[in-house]
Amino acid sequence: MSTPVCRRAEEVRRAARDSAWTDELRVHVAGCAACGEEALLASFFAQLASETSDLPPLPDAGSVRLAGLLSLRRARAVRLARALSIATALAWTCGGAAAAVVALRAWPLPGARLAALAGAIPRPAVAWLVASPGSALLAFGAGLLIALLAVGALDPEPAPNVS
């Protein structure tokens, strides 16, 4: 779209803003539609910008900064808490994995004991669970996954969004 703008528009805008009109510029504005519009708007905005009596008082700079700092520290604490929960979940995962490895390497002994224990409980599923190291590991992994998901779901507050 073409936008007809006079080359003296900037000059007119400055004159309207600073109330520094020359006779020659007044004559030009009277005969130039684009500059007439420019003068109208520049004058309007100059008046509007100079009128501050209806504006609310500014908040104190110190209190604005302090509120910002407090909120920032709160956001940091939330982030730290989240990192801690993730680290805790990871520690549990690593510990569990280590325990699983140990259990697998020495499976004959605990396997026999667990089988005996499972035999005492009238539940076929439990018996299946302890029947092989693979199924025990599978159940353990599912449990860890549920624990991790629970940690994620319990995260108290999302990370702050700075737009």
């Binding site: 004159a15 309207a16 600073d18 109330s19 520094a20 009109w21 020359t22 006779d23 007044r26 504005v29 519009e37 003068a39 109208l40 708007l41 520049a42 004058s43 309007f44």
Partner: peptide
């Protein structure tokens, strides 16, 4: 500009020369 003209607003062109 159209609204301002309708409302009778005129740019002040007095000022200092």
């Amino acid at each position: 500009a159209g609204r301002l003209r309708e409302a009778g607003f005129r740019p002040a062109q007095g000022g200092k020369a």
